[in-house]
Design a protein around this nucleic acid. Structure first.
Lengths: 207, 207
DNA sequence: CGCGGAAGTCAACGAGCGTTGGCAAAATAA
DNA sequence: TTATTTTGCCAACGCTCGTTGACTTCCGCG
């Protein structure tokens, strides 16, 4: 399963989870409809939980069309999950505000508009699907870790990035997936006020 | 799906996920073998990912026996997942060491012996399975939140418990499921040193 | 011994899954 | 017009799933 992250006009794509059909038939209308249904179902149930047939029924379209448009379920998954964390440039972040900024950015990734659904989908899929967790590791390595390394001035930036991601993923897990009431009930501002300083602490400033 | 947490000789059980077969045939040998195989597979793949047939093949035994012993897949799941977090009494924890103690306890839950596998199994299952996340919420409510409330002297104990669980689940997610290298590579002592103070901070002492 | 019940095997069910190839309709090109 | 490509539906494949009921084997008790 030799895939790689490829940057195409500003967005990260996964290339060749399986080899895509060379000629893309382009009825962009239905292609887009399939993608949107796929995003919603993958988001709600993860890779294994969402079936091609369910997605097809939502469009609605015949399941065979999905195979023609995307080659396989994995091809559809790759196309549906655009993984661009849109992390800001490290230079644009004042170091003493980095914690707050990162938490706000992360909340936006989860609560924001459709185009950034990739992370929720991946997290939901990664628990039961090996490929999805491989991808999360790749994203960590190529997008998160470098950004953190660019912000902090300390040496063990990788460990610090890991701790930051642990905190943010834990937040997402409890707030959006497990839906623990106290974590769900916090307003966005409360979350920023509570978690921001912790991220800031990991980056290296005082808490 | 009206189940409840019931405490039986010191351990939390889930009662009646479906109604259990009234008369339990008791070849305790194979019953135990089935339970152990089920625990391992549920642990590795979650509720949806592990199949009755796979579990049966591991024992090895005919899948039909599992139905006879546990009534259904859900019955097996309920029997396999004993959820006793074995949280220490709040009075036994010196408040200024609570962060360290809780992190050590949580690591023990994940890396320790078989009898406490319930939490990993539930977390892996909860992402795709509604019942499992219901159970996690119940455990939070009945075991975690009261313990935290007993330790901290502050008023918003529920929110603090939520934040603590967010941090600990995020750690488990990155370390044991996503296997992010920097988080995996930390020694147990490093984890305690890095995460302990954060838990301590949430409890209310200074960091 | 025989008998009864428990322990275990076997084959099958209906359903859902990803995927395939063939065929009809529609659009497009010649 | 005819010919060709695109777009879509349909039926089926081989598979795994949870679950069922009939069947055999074994063990203990009289």
């Amino acid at each position: 399963m030799n895939d790689a992250l490829v940057k195409v006009n500003g967005c990260w794509h996964i290339s060749s989870m399986t080899k895509a059909p060379a000629k893309i038939p382009k009825s962009d209308k239905t292609r887009q409809a399939i993608l949107e249904a796929a995003q919603r179902l993958f988001y709600e149930r993860g890779y294994d939980g969402a079936s091609v047939r369910q997605i097809a029924k939502e469009v609605p379209i015949d399941p065979a069309m999905i195979m023609r448009y995307f080659g396989s379920k994995e091809g559809l998954f790759s196309a549906a999950v655009l993984i661009d964390l849109k992390l800001p440039n490290p230079e644009d972040i004042p170091q003493d505000k980095a914690g707050e900024r990162l938490v706000r950015h992360f909340l936006m990734l989860w609560e924001g508009e459709r185009s950034t659904l990739g992370l929720p989908i991946l997290l939901r899929s990664a628990v039961s699907n090996q490929d999805a967790s491989d991808k999360i590791r790749a994203i960590f390595e190529k997008q998160v870790a470098p950004t953190i390394a660019g912000i902090t001035s300390l040496d063990d930036a990788d460990t610090r990035a890991g701790l930051i991601v642990s905190q943010l993923f834990g937040l997402a897990l409890c707030r959006y997936i497990l839906r623990l009431p106290p974590v769900v009930d916090m307003t966005e501002e409360e979350v920023v006020a509570r978690i921001g300083p912790i991220i800031q602490h990991h980056i290296g400033s005082s808490v």
